[in-house]
Design a binder for these strands. Structure first.
Length: 322
DNA sequence: CGACTTTGACCGGCGC
DNA sequence: GCGCCGGTCAAAGTCG
């Protein structure tokens, strides 16, 4: 309706190379990205969207064959050791990444993890709701769903990141509403999603939470699940692009966007832990460090005394409006 | 009272 | 064709 700015939303923070510094290697598709010359407001997702139209370069997901539970599907040896935190450390270079991508990258584009698209469905539903007055019967509403054509699935850009955190739902400046949680029962390893991040493989846990951005007309969703190998590892997957600005950024101005909360300190410590681990081990030899661990929205997190972060990553904040 | 979470049911795709 | 499973819906419950 009313021609709002239809241009894709961009996160209110500049893109820092430091975000990439936590990656052991920049994916090929991203190597051309220069934070110095990039547009001032370019988000991780936005960039990925532009450069790859999806985020398969960063994260790839596909279903694990039911018959092969947590079997390390990774070719070679790199990936599986990562999660177990054992092995000869992390290989800074990631041959598997490209190797495996050649076989599954398809995931990125049309069939990422065999997920289904409901965006069209929602639109259809809303239209029908308006047409029918308002849905009274729950079943009616559901049965009114028009079947989606095959191959019609289309998703927004997606990217996932891995964090070591005890908190499932990391604050990112947006407001989310949980609309579902799925726990697959009676099966130790159901159709588990396998994430290939860098050269590491993450198997999602069988319990996932589904969130949707609360803003109207914004279809961004995110899924939060824990790694089955390491319960302290949270895999967060974003899907779509926000069509609005972060409520946090609107009210904040400046670099500190979220008001401090009891959980902020916890988050901060977690972030610091990650940043320091990653950056301090120049060669990324710390097997406990899952790179790609910084959420793309990280700079929106509130850090009361970001000096700490600056100490560790000097350019972490100076890019944002200061 | 509004916003949000919980939770069981439902739908449709996919594998067998 | 059937059953499993991921994703979603929506009523009920909870919280501030």
């Amino acid at each position: 309706m009313s021609g709002e700015s239809s241009e894709p939303y961009r996160h209110d923070f500049p893109f820092h190379d430091d975000l990439f510094s936590v990656f052991s290697q920049k994916p090929d598709g991203l190597q051309g990205f220069d934070p110095q010359t990039a547009p001032p407001f370019m988000s991780f997702g936005d960039y990925l969207h532009r450069s790859t139209t999806d985020c398969s370069l960063v994260v790839q997901g596909f279903d694990a064959p039911r018959s092969q539970p947590c079997d390390p599907v990774v070719d070679g040896d790199g990936g599986k050791n990562a999660a177990s935190g054992e092995g000869d450390g992390m290989t800074p270079v990631t041959p598997n990444f490209s190797a495996s991508s050649s076989s599954t990258e398809a995931a990125g584009d049309e069939d990422w993890g065999h997920c289904k698209v409901d965006q069209p469905k929602q639109e259809v539903q809303e239209e029908e709701k308006h047409a029918q007055g308002d849905g009274e019967g729950r079943d009616k509403t559901k049965k009114a769903n028009k079947p989606r054509k095959k191959g019609e699935r289309q998703r927004g850009p997606r990217f996932a990141f891995v964090t070591k955190s005890e908190v499932d739902h990391l604050e990112d400046g947006y407001r989310w509403r949980k609309y579902g949680q799925k726990a697959v029962k009676n099966s130790p390893y159901p159709r588990r999603v396998i994430y290939l991040i860098e050269s590491h493989t993450f198997f999602s846990h069988s319990l996932g939470s589904y969130y949707r951005c609360t803003a109207q007309k914004c279809n961004v969703k995110k899924r939060v699940e824990r790694s089955c190998q390491d319960p302290t590892t949270v895999i967060t997957t974003y899907e779509g692009q926000h069509t609005h600005h972060s409520p946090a950024s609107l009210r904040g101005g400046g670099g500190h966007m979220l008001s401090p909360s009891p959980t902020t300190n916890l988050r901060r410590s977690l972030l610091l832990q990650q940043v320091s681990r990653s950056s301090s081990s120049a060669g990324y030899t710390n097997p406990n460090t899952y790179h790609a661990g910084l959420p793309p929205l990280l700079p929106q997190l509130h850090v009361p005394d970001h000096g700490l972060l600056q100490d560790i990553v000097p350019s972490f904040t100076h890019g944002s409006q200061r």
